[in-house]
Design a protein around this nucleic acid. Structure first.
Lengths: 215, 215
DNA sequence: TCTTTTATGTGAAAAATAATACAATAAATA
DNA sequence: TATTTATTGTATTATTTTTCACATAAAAGA
């Protein structure tokens, strides 16, 4: 399964969740396609590849789809625990964000090197000094970290996280982190979210508007 | 030029900027390739398509590349002005972020519907009530907005921005905005940054590690 | 019951994207 | 100067991804 397909699957999952909460029970490929911004053929092809089948002329059962896709995406009863490394403004904003819960994601702790920050007990989740990284991640069985440290600390934080066994990184710093190969032969999963880079892409696209994709 | 290529071009641009600030004057395709995480052949192919030429065996001149790519990306002397709609925690964090300036991006104003927020004058950039959107965007010739409002306000904010002529959107809310076609036949450029969606993709990839791409 | 309609599921075709291979060429070296 | 080496530029090939087209099936309507 390639990267674009993973994105589509996660989108389908969220759309289906929303449809279910609206009380719907069935969905057609073209409904999902419209909502996800892809073609109906692609939706059917994706499901076919994942061995998810609907009823001819009857569409797909939403609970069935959610069950299948949820398993593929590793959804369990228990939420997946995540930590935030770097509790500056962005890190704190993410701690307060309450949109993770419905998706089965839980921020369990923050980390910072500044005593003024980790001594402050008004955060919505506990904030620890970096020295307690290993202890906390093993206690909560954390596999994924969000990096929101300043540019200069990015690389250090990344290596530290690798050392304590974190295997998934969502990096908000403008330094692009690359999934270097680890001693054990595996590579971490790294997603970089670079806001300035996104804006630059938008500026480019505005400069050269795409010509109408001939229906 | 497709989306992946735009991403590559923006990456090349940043890498080249960094190399220049390190005092380098020339670069080989494979240097850029390594830094950007792509193959050298692809770098050469990209430049070839953009009609940027280097010297056989001599590599590419960094100032020349920056000039070319900068023009393609719409870089000018003047920074590109951006507004932030929704001055909650994330919006405020972005206002304070000082990593935009080196990339020629300037946050010129924030907007919020809450008087407690727009009356507070301690923000790093002026914050206005939504009613002044049109006035401010035309004064600063703003084409792009960052949406950081709560989920429930996302769709409204989006349509409001379309009405006042904003054509580029970077959306941080979990509602995926789609570039609906406008009356004038054009479509806005919309990039959605959905943090939970990114995390979900990471969880998936951790569950099914990619098998070693056979060198 | 028979016909029509509306979806799915999928093989085949097309389109898009990237890698390969190598000629061309310029610099370095002998 | 001749030879070797290193790198660009691009035609060709390979791969990946998506769309097309249609057989299949189920429901609805006549």
């Amino acid at each position: 399964m390639n990267s674009d397909m993973i994105i589509r699957i996660t989108k389908y999952y969220r759309i289906l969740n929303r449809l279910r909460s609206l009380g719907l029970e069935k969905v057609f490929a073209h409904n999902l396609a419209d909502a996800a911004g892809v073609s109906a053929a692609l939706v059917r092809k994706d499901f076919s590849l994942l061995e998810i089948y609907g009823q001819k002329r009857g569409g797909y059962e939403i609970p069935d789809l959610l069950e299948h896709l949820g398993r593929i995406l590793g959804k369990t009863e228990e939420p997946q625990n995540v930590i935030i490394v770097g509790c500056g403004r962005i890190g704190k904003a993410l701690m307060h964000y309450n949109g993770f819960e419905p998706d089965g994601i839980r921020i369990v702790a923050g980390f910072d090197s500044d005593p003024l920050i980790y001594s402050d007990s008004t955060h919505p989740v506990p904030v620890y000094p970096i020295s307690r990284l290993e202890e906390v991640t093993s206690t909560f069985d954390v596999q994924v970290a969000i990096i929101t440290v300043p540019e200069s600390a990015t690389s250090d934080s990344f290596h530290r996280l690798m050392q304590v066994g974190i295997r998934g990184i969502l990096n908000f710093s403008p330094i692009t982190l690359k999934p270097i190969k680890l001693e054990d032969g595996t590579s971490p999963v790294v997603h970089n979210m670079n806001i300035a880079l996104e804006l630059e892409q938008i500026f480019y696209k505005l400069q050269f508007p795409k010509t109408e994709p001939a229906k």
